[in-house]
């Protein structure tokens, strides 16, 4: 079983991934087989079972509302391929 090209294109769009034709064929076939493997879960009776999202309860309570980090905007912006005047630069979004 392979996922059809339209379904793969839809997923790639949701995931913001540009796929070339070879990738699309290969990953579509792999995903089809992976989904078939996941289908083992459909055979299990899970009625009334609460989903488990985290293995252990998260610690209760909050940190004090205090500023602990200094301004690192310069160091962080320096990691970007394109920034200017304290902002990240991106291609034109609005025509």
């Amino acid at each position: 079983m392979s996922l059809d090209p339209a379904a793969i294109d839809h997923l790639a769009r949701l995931a913001r991934l540009a796929l070339d034709p070879a990738d699309r064929a290969r990953l579509g076939a792999d995903l089809g087989r992976t989904v078939a493997m996941m289908d083992a879960l459909q055979q299990i009776d899970v009625d009334g079972v609460e989903p488990l999202a985290q293995p252990h309860p998260l610690p209760a309570g909050l940190r004090p509302d205090a500023v602990t980090e200094t301004d690192a905007s310069e160091a962080l912006l320096a990691l970007s391929g394109a920034s200017h005047g304290g902002y990240y630069l991106v291609p034109r979004v609005i025509e």
Binding site: M38, L41, Q42, I44, V46, V49, E50, P51, L52, A53
Partner: peptide
Amino acid sequence: RAQRVRRL
């Protein structure tokens, strides 16, 4: 469903 199986 996988989260439920995780609980099991």
